[in-house]
């Protein structure tokens, strides 16, 4: 359900930005691991949502963005090994999430 509405919103932005174009060939999204969205479900929803639009044959590209945290004690950015976001040096749990929450439309390819 959620992924369908996300894809609809992405498509709305794409159609608005594609002014004058007759065809959208590709749509690139950036999806963070912590965005709450499942890329596979986005792909499935995309096929349905684009039908009847100038993006009906578009390719969906998804850049998956891993979580990166910052440890202020060690002044270190790190990719957590698991859900606990523990600094590999001092083993404190970080609450400073540098990236991984992205849910963005990056670019379009149109003609």
């Amino acid at each position: 359900m959620h992924e369908v509405s996300i894809v609809q919103k992405a498509l709305e932005i794409a159609l608005e930005q594609a002014q004058g174009a007759t065809k959208i060939h590709a749509l690139k999204l950036r999806v963070g691991e912590l965005s709450g969205v499942v890329p596979e479900a986005l792909e499935f929803a995309f096929e349905v949502v684009v039908q009847g639009t100038i993006a009906s044959e578009a390719r969906l590209e998804i850049d998956r963005i891993p979580v990166v945290c910052h440890c202020s004690t060690c002044n270190l950015d790190f990719q957590p090994a698991n859900l606990f976001y523990e600094c590999p040096q001092c083993h404190q749990i970080s609450i400073d999430i540098v990236c991984g929450r992205e849910l963005e439309i990056a670019s379009l390819e149109v003609s």
Binding site: A18, S107, S111
Partner: peptide
């Protein structure tokens, strides 16, 4: 065969 063009958007899908 109009040329393909890339448009950078870089906007949050939930920005609205």
């Amino acid at each position: 065969h109009p040329p393909r063009q890339k448009i950078a958007i870089d906007r949050g899908i939930l920005s609205k």
